[in-house]
Deep mutational scan, measured.
Amino acid sequence: TLFEALYDYEARTEDDLSFHKGEKFQILNSSEGDWWEVRSLTTGETGYIPSPYLAPV
C-alpha cells in the first residue's frame, strides 16, 4: 500500500525524512508506533516520518 503526505514536514533529527504535501511513500516498517520508516517515491530517500501526516493512496 502506498501512502501520500497530507502536510509538509521538516526533519528534526538525522533519522527523520523531510517531505512535501502530496509526496508518495512506500512503507518499510510501521511497527515502531507513530513513526514509520518509509522510502520516498519522489527522492528515493529513506527515513522516519510521523504516520499522522500520511493517508493511504
Score class of each variant (00 low, 15 high):
N29Y: 06
L2K: 04
T46Y: 07
L28N: 01
N29F: 06
E37N: 06
I49Q: 00
I27M: 06
P52N: 15
R12C: 10
S40W: 02
T1F: 12
Q26L: 14
E23K: 00
T43N: 07
L28Y: 03
E4A: 07
G22T: 02
K21R: 11
F3L: 06
D15Q: 14
W35D: 05
P56N: 06
D8C: 08
G47V: 03
F3V: 07
L17V: 07
L54I: 10
P50A: 09
T42F: 09
G33M: 11
P56I: 09
V38K: 00
A55W: 10
Y48M: 13
G22Y: 05
D16F: 13
S51I: 07
S30P: 07
V38Y: 02
W35I: 11
V57C: 05
L28D: 01
G47L: 06
D8R: 04
E23M: 06
F3G: 04
S30C: 10
G47R: 03
E45W: 09
Y53C: 09
F25M: 03
Y48G: 02
A11D: 02
Y53V: 06
L2A: 05
A55Q: 12
P56T: 06
T13L: 11
Y7M: 13
T1P: 13
I49F: 01
A5P: 01
K21L: 05
E32V: 11
R12Q: 14
E10P: 05
E45V: 10
T1N: 12
E37L: 15
T13K: 13
S31M: 13
E4K: 05
Y48T: 08
D16W: 09
L41I: 11
G33K: 12
A55H: 10
E45N: 12
E37R: 08
D15K: 15
T13H: 14
K24L: 15
Y48S: 06
V38I: 02
L54K: 04
G44P: 01
A5L: 09
S31L: 11
A55T: 13
G22P: 00
D15G: 15
F3R: 02
Y48W: 15
G47K: 03
F19C: 09
T13S: 13
Y53E: 02
L2N: 04
Q26W: 13
T43D: 03
G44W: 06
P50N: 10
Q26K: 06
I27E: 00
L41R: 01
T43E: 01
T42M: 10
D16E: 15
E37F: 15
G44C: 08
K24C: 07
T43G: 02
L17C: 04
E10V: 14
P52H: 15
D16S: 15
S40I: 06
V57M: 09
E37V: 10
V57N: 05
R39E: 07
Y7Q: 11
E32N: 15
Y9D: 01
T43P: 00
K21Y: 05
N29D: 12
W35H: 09
P52W: 15
A5V: 03
W36T: 04
E37K: 09
E4G: 02
L41G: 02
A5S: 06
A55S: 12
H20E: 08
S51D: 02
P52E: 15
G33W: 09
G47T: 03
E37S: 07
L2M: 09
T1A: 12
I49N: 00
Y53M: 13
P50D: 04
V38A: 09
D16Y: 12
A55Y: 10
K24D: 01
K24H: 11
T43Y: 01
I49P: 00
A5W: 01
S51T: 07
W36E: 01
L6N: 04
L54D: 01
E4H: 07
R12F: 10
W35P: 13
N29W: 06
W35Q: 07
P50F: 15
S40K: 14
T1E: 13
L2V: 13
E4I: 15
Y7A: 10
S31P: 09
S40L: 07
T1K: 12
A55M: 11
D34L: 14
E14I: 08
A55E: 08
N29T: 08
H20Y: 12
N29L: 05
Q26V: 15
R12V: 14
K21F: 05
E37W: 15
D8M: 02
P50Q: 12
A55C: 07
E10A: 10
S40H: 08
F25T: 00
N29H: 08
R12L: 13
Y53W: 11
A11M: 04
T13F: 15
S40E: 03
Y48A: 04
L28E: 02
I27K: 08
G33I: 11
S51K: 11
F25C: 02
L17S: 02
F19D: 00
A55V: 14
E4F: 12
L17D: 00
R12W: 08
S40M: 06
P56H: 07
T46D: 03
E23F: 03
G22R: 01
A11V: 02
D16M: 13
E45T: 10
W35K: 09
D8W: 04
K24V: 14
E45H: 12
W35A: 06
Y53R: 01
T43R: 03
Y9S: 02
F25P: 00
F25V: 02
S18G: 08
D15M: 14
Y9H: 07
L54W: 04
A5T: 05
L6Y: 03
W36N: 01
L2E: 06
E4R: 05
I27S: 02
L2C: 07
E45R: 14
Y48E: 01
E45K: 15
R39Q: 12
D16G: 15
R12P: 14
E10N: 10
E45D: 10
H20I: 12
L28S: 01
E37M: 12
E32C: 10
A5I: 02
E14W: 08
V38Q: 01
W36Q: 02
E4D: 01
L6P: 03
G44H: 06
S40T: 03
D15P: 05
A5C: 04
V57T: 09
F3W: 15
T42V: 11
V57D: 06
W36P: 00
I27N: 01
G22S: 04
F25R: 00
V38M: 04
F3D: 00
W35Y: 12
S40D: 04
V57P: 05
Y48Q: 07
D34K: 08
Y9Q: 03
S18A: 07
G47E: 00
L54N: 04
V38T: 00
R39Y: 11
E10W: 08
T42K: 12
L6I: 11
R39P: 01
V38H: 00
E10K: 10
W36R: 01
K24S: 05
V57Y: 08
E23P: 00
L2H: 07
G47S: 02
Y53H: 07
E37D: 03
E32P: 09
L2P: 04
I49H: 00
V57W: 09
L54M: 07
L28I: 12
A11I: 02
D15R: 15
L41A: 06
L6C: 05
E14N: 12
L2G: 02
F3A: 05
D16H: 15
E4M: 11
R39F: 09
S31Y: 09
T46N: 05
V38S: 01
S51G: 11
T42A: 13
Y9E: 01
G22I: 00
D34R: 06
T13C: 10
T43M: 01
R12K: 13
P50M: 12
H20K: 15
A55G: 10
P50L: 13
F19G: 01
S31K: 11
I27P: 01
F19I: 09
V38C: 08
K21W: 04
N29A: 08
P52F: 15
E14S: 12
F19T: 05
D16V: 13
E37Q: 11
D34T: 10
L2D: 05
W35E: 05
R12E: 13
G22F: 05
I49A: 14
E45A: 14
P52T: 15
E23G: 02
A5E: 01
T42P: 01
T13E: 11
H20P: 05
L28Q: 02
E45I: 11
T43I: 01
S18T: 10
E14G: 13
D16R: 13
Y9N: 03
F19L: 04
G44M: 07
